[in-house]
Amino acid sequence: MLTPVIQEEKTGCGIAASAAIAGLTYSQAKKVANQLGIDAADKTLWSSTTSVRCLLTALDKKVADETVPFTGWDAQPDCALLAVKWHLEQGVPFWHWVVFARDGTQAYVLDSKQGLKTHVRTDFGRMHPKWFLAVSST
């Protein structure tokens, strides 16, 4: 089972999700992100897939080149970044990154949002992903 990583910045969900997938702490992933020129305050971290894909690649993870529309939980790969809370702001899409993981028959979502009671979620009916990026080890 992957370990949840809590985002330390309001806009650090992409860094936290990457850290959880790579088995790192938030500060370790943030250090790598900053070395790549990626900062949590940069809106492209949650309005484009480029930054999080670059970070995961630097953390030795293979990330799909293209997003795949979400069609259901059973259709998810064993590890994926999901775009939830997808919305438009002045015509620009924004979302919150979460991690979907499946270990054998157990599926769960890691949500890095600070205020949650639990960061391992199985309340799939309450989450409404727009699309996902498959992630695997290189």
Rank of each mutant, 00 (worst) to 15 (best):
1 M>I: 15
2 L>N: 01
5 V>Q: 03
6 I>Y: 00
6 I>K: 02
6 I>N: 05
7 Q>E: 08
8 E>F: 12
9 E>V: 12
10 K>E: 12
11 T>E: 04
13 C>E: 00
15 I>F: 15
15 I>Q: 10
16 A>T: 07
16 A>S: 13
17 A>V: 07
18 S>N: 12
19 A>L: 03
19 A>W: 00
20 A>I: 04
20 A>W: 02
21 I>Y: 09
22 A>P: 01
22 A>R: 03
23 G>C: 05
25 T>I: 05
26 Y>F: 14
26 Y>W: 07
27 S>L: 04
30 K>G: 06
34 N>H: 11
35 Q>S: 07
37 G>R: 10
38 I>Q: 00
39 D>Q: 14
40 A>H: 04
41 A>M: 06
43 K>H: 12
45 L>K: 07
46 W>T: 10
47 S>Q: 10
47 S>T: 03
49 T>H: 14
52 V>A: 14
55 L>A: 09
56 L>P: 11
59 L>D: 08
61 K>H: 14
62 K>Y: 12
63 V>L: 06
64 A>H: 01
64 A>L: 13
65 D>E: 13
66 E>W: 10
67 T>Q: 13
68 V>F: 03
68 V>D: 11
73 W>T: 04
73 W>S: 02
75 A>P: 12
77 P>M: 09
78 D>I: 14
78 D>W: 15
86 W>Q: 10
86 W>R: 06
86 W>E: 07
89 E>Y: 13
89 E>I: 11
89 E>D: 06
94 F>R: 04
95 W>F: 09
95 W>V: 06
96 H>R: 03
97 W>A: 02
97 W>H: 02
99 V>C: 05
99 V>Q: 00
100 F>P: 00
101 A>I: 02
101 A>Y: 10
102 R>Q: 03
103 D>K: 08
103 D>L: 06
105 T>F: 11
106 Q>R: 12
107 A>S: 04
107 A>Q: 05
107 A>L: 01
107 A>M: 13
109 V>L: 02
112 S>Y: 02
114 Q>K: 15
115 G>K: 01
118 T>C: 09
119 H>K: 01
119 H>Q: 03
122 T>F: 00
124 F>A: 12
125 G>Y: 07
126 R>M: 13
126 R>W: 15
127 M>F: 14
127 M>N: 08
128 H>T: 11
129 P>L: 07
129 P>D: 11
129 P>M: 10
133 L>D: 03
134 A>Q: 14
135 V>E: 11
